[in-house]
Design a protein around this nucleic acid. Structure first.
Lengths: 134, 134
DNA sequence: TTCGCACTTGAACCCTGCTTCAAGTCAATG
DNA sequence: CATTGACTTGAAGCAGGGTTCAAGTGCGAA
């Protein structure tokens, strides 16, 4: 047998929609390895590439970044993209942790209109108002 | 003097664009406190409301959620929204921490094509391929 | 009085990451 | 031979959160 998968099989195994696969193809992230009477056929290798794309997406990389990584000429090139993302990921985690603290704090407030009535919120708001430009 | 701020002043102090303020108005999140010859005027109070919106956004709430909170009739009502978001925030932080581990791992890989050549990546990919449906 | 800037409006546009649609093709099944 | 179901295409649509545009108004400064 040919060992080639249809787009539907690939989609099922990678847990994505077929429309997504065709979209990635348009974006240059993924190409079928063959066509059989017009239909796309994929090697298992290519299925793994698709899964890899999903993992990078979960790490917060944009499809543009992922394109950069997949089509990078050198190790250095793709590691630069990944390295930058690692830093921004750390920053994002820090921000979310701060936001979490804030939200937890807000939930301690016993007022109907937290923005205006709550002292705790008030302090946070003032911090923002006096903060330097973004 | 009137103590009322123009949209431009509000925008500058809250570090947002005037177009954003008008957009929030369309969405029902924020209303001017007066009009002077057609122009919007805001009380300091309302500026604080705008800043509060920004803080909730940073905590990952959608404008719809924020609308729910700001226009909530009762404490219980807005705390329910915030509480749900707190949970999803915790989950999001956990996911990002996992993604961070993954990306850090990927950056240890010394191959040009991590998806196909790297054993470490390979193991992760296989985990995904054999994972149950999303 | 004329400049120049901030403001007004509604409508259209942008970006990302897809999904949906219409119309048509192919292979197997009944 | 007709149907069924997965596939093909390009184009359009969606959601969220805004931004931009065109055409016009108001007001203080020179």
């Amino acid at each position: 047998m040919s060992e080639l998968l249809t787009i539907g099989e690939v989609a099922a195994q990678a847990h994505v929609a077929t429309s997504t696969i065709r979209y990635y193809e348009r974006r240059g992230l993924l190409n079928p390895d063959a066509r059989q009477s017009g239909r796309r056929r994929y090697r298992t290798e290519t299925l793994r590439r698709l899964v890899f794309i999903g993992m990078l997406q979960d790490a917060g990389l944009s499809l543009d970044d992922i394109d950069g990584i997949l089509n990078a000429a050198t190790v250095a090139e793709w590691k630069a993209i990944g390295g930058r993302r690692l830093e921004s990921l750390d920053e994002q985690i820090r921000k979310l942790q701060h936001a979490r603290e804030f939200l937890a704090l807000a939930l301690l407030c016993r007022f109907d209109h937290p923005a205006t009535d709550c002292k705790i919120m008030g302090a946070e708001i003032d911090r923002r108002l006096n903060a330097p430009a973004l």
